[in-house]
Nucleic acid binder design. Structure first.
Lengths: 195, 195
DNA sequence: CGCATTTCTTAATCTACATCATCTTTCCCG
DNA sequence: CGGGAAAGATGATGTAGATTAAGAAATGCG
């Protein structure tokens, strides 16, 4: 069952009996996403929370010079959405794209509201997810103002250990906030230092 | 009445009849804050939302090298709090300090909850404040990754027009994310260009 | 399997911003 | 209102990371 990963994720924060699990599962929809396929474009209203069970998604914005900036990755076991747009139901700034063929589970905004009515303890669960995204954003602002690229890379490594040797370097570079060229040079210097 | 500014602020988002206004006001507490006085320290749990009616507060973090990074200002008409800590009631990372003698209105977390029960439409109001802080943080991450110091300064100017010639330059520099020396140089060059 | 496209590496040069030092100006508290 | 501290200006020098260019390696798709 690919839903096991999701149930595990939920049970980190709230306990569900089997009736509640049933209700939860009835609101979910599995979705296969092909490599390079977009499931959200900037300017759209975000209608879904997406939980990845296999593969990997990325959330990114495009600045006025056409440069992409990766704000988050979603490997298996992670949720992804444009939190602002999802909450406010106003147009967002995030694009969400599959970096490889990906299996996911969709919880629509509408079903999320229904779920709150039928199993109120899910309010707690999604409140915690929102808090986590808040704290991550706050921390990221500070990190970008005070840390070097190398330090930011090591934060990436802690946050996404499974992605380190798994993702195109240019995606990691974009998350860390440097050019692919500099990132390549930086990595080879880090290896040299360690040797 | 210094509460007028606050009632105006609230009525931008929700309409209150006079009974509801009464209830709201009964939960508030005016507070005078002296220049250089802290009303929140990092590591503490944030217990209050603070609305400024006169003067100015700043929210900032201190990095591992002891350098301060200003995340937000609160001139008259603005709310300030460590949103993450306020919502989660866990220790936060923000310090909040008065940049000059300041008049403010305090709404404690506890009273905020009571207010939700007595006047539920305040849920909408504070939800919107939370959304605004979310979108501001998201935008700030992108801005810091893609804009020059000069562009970030012009965003500061739009966001806080009343503060431009009113605040120590080093505070603005810290918000923009540059050293005071570079900020001084940058400003004199911007003036030269315009002349 | 093989070719095209994407990704990675390395090098030279460039630039935005930091750091350090010194001097001047402003401001605030006794 | 006067003196001391904080803030600001300006110059010289240092550096993290960008840009451009060009070749090598990897990868995905027909």
């Amino acid at each position: 069952m690919p839903f096991d990963l999701l149930l595990n994720n939920v049970s980190k924060y709230i306990h569900l009996d089997s009736a509640e699990k049933e209700i939860f599962l009835s609101f979910l929809q599995p979705k296969h996403i092909k490599r390079k396929q977009f499931i959200l474009n900037d300017g759209e209203i975000c209608k879904n929370s997406v939980f990845v069970t296999d593969g990997c998604l990325r959330g990114f914005t495009v600045d006025k010079n056409g440069i992409e900036h990766v704000l988050s990755f979603a490997p298996p076991g992670w949720w992804i959405a444009d939190m602002y747009s999802l909450i406010s139901q106003k147009p967002g700034i995030l694009n969400i794209e599959a970096l490889e063929d990906t299996e996911s589970i969709i919880l629509s905004k509408i079903n999320q509201e229904k779920l709150y009515h039928e199993v109120p303890k899910f309010e707690r669960f999604f409140r915690i997810l929102t808090e986590n995204s808040l704290v991550a954003n706050q921390q990221r602002i500070v990190d970008n103002m005070s840390l070097t690229a190398e330090e930011r890379y090591s934060i990436f490594c802690k946050r996404y250990p499974t992605l380190i040797d798994h993702l195109p370097q240019k995606q990691i570079a974009s998350y860390v906030g440097v050019t692919p060229e500099f990132f390549s040079r930086m990595r080879s210097e880090m290896i040299r230092k360690r040797a």
